[in-house]
Amino acid sequence: MEKSYIIKQISIFSENRPGRLAAVAGALKEAGINIFAFSIAEADGFGVVRALVDRPEDAHRRLTDLGFRVSFTDVIGVKMRDEPGGLSEIAGVLGDAAINIEYAYAYSGRDAAVLILRVDQVEDAIRKILGSGGELLKASTFH
């Protein structure tokens, strides 16, 4: 049952130079793939573009054909209460359970702000968040 909350994020290796994000976004646009959320993580001269899309398999195939290095990453989406303490609550639950957040990014969903989390123990995290009364987005919300 935890599995239904695991969302497939696509991660794309990209050099940190002008035009690379445009190339990724352009390819997805041409394939009619919708991007719900994305973030860019940057290191020394290169980065990883992370995106939640409606058709991850298609996006993976499309970008791979274009020569990009793409992989899937399991993430979860937490619905945030749009009021002070929303983040603190979620972070506290995970921290107490010794679950590490590797990275996070947020986007504004249809009815609430959504925090996308990459954690080291994804199924534990789902149990803890649901157990503490938190609300998670089902993978089927996206794809």
């Binding site: 020394d44 990883v48 290095r69 992989s71 990453t73 590797e102």
Partner: peptide, 18 residues
């Protein structure tokens, strides 16, 4: 160049490869 096998999707793995 990154190879097909080398990319896990995680930034820290890229840094490790480097």
């Amino acid at each position: 160049e990154m190879s097909r096998a080398g990319f896990s999707g995680e930034l820290q793995d890229l840094a490790r490869i480097q």
